[in-house]
Design a protein around this nucleic acid. Structure first.
Lengths: 231, 231
DNA sequence: TAACAAACAGTCAACCCTGTCTTTTTGTGC
DNA sequence: GCACAAAAAGACAGGGTTGACTGTTTGTTA
């Protein structure tokens, strides 16, 4: 309407740094102070951005938070991909669980948790959170299946993967209250046993797993049988 | 100090109803509006109590919330006990998981979730939440072991029970975002299989389970083998 | 260099929330 | 019936948050 086809992107490029700083500060404050404690005033102070500039980029708090949700989604995806890439090839089931456990106890998870809980009673926020969370959920699921070399065509395997993800979600939630790392490790040790046992119990044809990092057979063998003292 | 040994409990008995109304209103608002949305003003309005009366009983918001935490802990315990008592004797593993699943998706869980997340960044609140949450956690654990008829002296059994509780915690958290009951049911179906298989795999002497509602043997047999279409 | 628009800066008013204070009512003991 | 204390009621001030508003700088285009 008002802006003709004149200047569009040149200097706006520079201001992206400011937006990024604001979003980073928002996520940091979500972790440190929680959603309720993340006031726009604090965000602008933390980011070193004037209040006016902040309101120029994000006119309302909801705009800021929604952008932070998108930012956080991207960060979570990137961190997961990076962690997966750094996984020792065929590291076995336990290594995958460690990866998941680490992610679901990391600061980004904590920030996401704050957003989930806040979104529950904030329709505008929920509108932004729900679809992105589903997207991340699908990504994590896909990644887990791939890393485990699981065959979802086998009945029950899909549910087992879902259960694994819900388990680490629960562990992540528990960690925000009392951070008991040893407890987590023992549980994941045990769970790795269960998964290996269950996945190998009814194995479908694993030969057509094209790009799977590790097939069932190799990962099962590669698992060092350490968990004896788990009691 | 000030109050001599004159009148103590007589009329204070009457005011307990008011305290109860305030705590009930607090829990309701935690579910409906979240922790941040639970202002003391709203609580007094919801409870039909004047602001002055409220501040007479709970001088500060923290006092009110801490009392609500204790109230909620009692309610959770009572609900769990009631549900356990209503369980058909020897209902099997799946029935126990249903019980847990229902509890961890109930309003009391939602209210507790709000308190957990708020307590993470609120030391005063954490001081009240942490010990009570541990208490409830131990109770739930004990109850689950008893209902499953599990023998924790067997290596790995304890971790499996803990994993079960963390799983339902994760399912409860997921439910607050998207309430997908069928997904939950399928996952719990599968989990019941896993538990039965794992618990029976290394069975210790189950004969000395004195008051266990159902021993391993019976519950394993009582499980109707329905889950075929779980994919 | 002049003009124009976007980016940036900072102040201000309206709002809500908490907790203190004073006043009124209710119940209990003498 | 009276005195006293607890309970209940409501007004009020202080602090903080949000978003609107006006002014200033910077960069791009003609």
């Amino acid at each position: 309407m008002v802006t003709a086809a004149t200047t569009r992107v040149p200097q706006e490029e520079r201001s992206r740094a400011m937006r990024a700083r604001l979003l980073e500060a928002t996520v940091e404050l979500l972790v440190e102070r929680g959603f309720a404690g993340t006031s726009t005033t604090l965000v602008s102070e933390r980011a070193g951005v004037s209040r006016g500039a902040q309101l120029h980029h994000f006119p309302t708090k909801n705009d800021l938070v929604v952008a932070a949700v998108e930012h956080l989604t991207a960060v979570r995806g990137a961190e997961l991909e990076a962690a997966a890439a750094a996984l020792p090839s065929g590291g076995g089931t336990r290594a995958v669980l460690t990866l998941l456990g680490d992610h679901f106890t990391s600061p980004v998870f904590t920030a996401a948790l704050e957003l989930w809980v806040a979104a529950r009673t904030d329709p505008a926020l929920m509108e932004a959170v729900a679809p992105l969370e589903q997207k991340v959920g699908r990504e994590v699921h896909r990644l887990t299946v791939e890393l485990l070399g699981a065959d979802e065509s086998v009945p029950g395997v899909r549910e087992l993967v879902q259960a694994t993800l819900d388990l680490v979600r629960g562990l992540g939630l528990a960690t925000t209250i009392t951070d008991d790392r040893r407890r987590r490790e023992r549980i994941l040790d045990r769970w790795a046993q269960v998964i290996d046992q269950a996945l190998d119990a009814a194995p479908g044809p694993t030969s057509d797993a094209t790009d799977a990092r590790a097939t069932r057979a190799t990962s099962a063998h590669a698992t060092p049988a350490t968990p004896r003292e788990t009691t």
